[in-house]
Nucleic acid binder design. Structure first.
Lengths: 167, 167
DNA sequence: CGCTTATGAATGAAGG
DNA sequence: CCTTCATTCATAAGCG
């Protein structure tokens, strides 16, 4: 992700389709697709879905199912983690602060209405009925918020020493 | 996620004054404190601690929680890495020593060639599951074999056709 | 100034 | 799911 909203940017020399070795590194197309699916609300794909996705992605480069699996896990986890760190006190006052509820299910309040092509794509993924899948599209935006914002205004001087209870 | 794409523009950090920075650069005080904490034994601060530390450090300059988070991660990782390298060219004859001590591209030379057939093979398996899935990664350094899944019954598989439109 | 090094940031992969 | 490790990428800093 980008860093702090300050433009940063880097182009990750994606080039790689052939990828060299070791760990999988997604091509731009693969990433695009994955991201799109995620944004559409897919968070924990079932095995079938993973396989399907993987198959499709393999067109763009070598990939294994576990990669897809991990990708979703990581992406989801980090989004959550991100949010967790993000909340708690300081939030930029200039914007509506995302008033998050607690640790999870923040996205519940976002009405994700995404009419774009994604929807149709999603329909093509067979979802098994008995699964506990959630399409509660929990995504608001990708690529801006990161952990927390430092509140730029005057802040009280903190005591100079930190007492970290652990260790 | 948002890194690739194109373009890259970076703002030149105008070395002086506030400037919009591309990445956080700890001030001496911040670094001191962080280092001290690290030396005190703090290695993986919890979210609370991170926030706490971050707050404290913000007194000395702009900082975000993620900075603290990364700082500890990196610091720990690099210490370990250093130790490991040291260990390698110190003792331990039992292991092939990685003799590339200069840069950090050690892994570069281990190219495990991976059979291309893997992908196809996988796609041919009608793996499927309709209930709770439990993945168990059987990782194989040689790039073969990947997941095994444990599941109850499940037999039929959903239609695999999916057409990812657009993109 | 260009190169090397140090390090912030990111993320794939596991482990538990 | 959550946390942690390892590796990689990009860039600021340090130096000759």
């Amino acid at each position: 992700m980008d860093q702090d909203g300050v433009s940063g940017f880097c182009m990750r020399k994606s080039s790689s389709s052939g990828s060299k070795y070791g760990r999988w590194n997604p091509t731009t197309e693969q990433l695009q697709l994955l991201t799109q699916l995620f944004k559409s609300g897919l968070r924990t794909p079932t095995i079938d879905q993973i396989q399907n996705i993987s198959s499709q992605l393999s067109f763009y480069g070598k990939i294994q199912t576990k990669n897809v699996f991990y990708w979703f896990q990581n992406h989801k986890a980090r989004e959550r983690q991100k949010r967790r760190k993000l909340c708690v006190n300081h939030i930029i006052p200039t914007q509506n602060s995302i008033n998050n509820t607690s640790t999870q299910s923040i996205g519940e309040m976002y009405q994700v209405s995404e009419p774009d092509s994604v929807v149709e794509t999603l329909q093509l993924f067979p979802l098994n009925s008995s699964d506990r899948l959630r399409w509660h599209a929990n995504e608001c935006r990708d690529g801006d918020v990161m952990f927390s914002y430092t509140k730029g205004e005057g802040m009280e001087h903190p005591p100079l020493e930190l007492r970290l209870s652990s260790l």
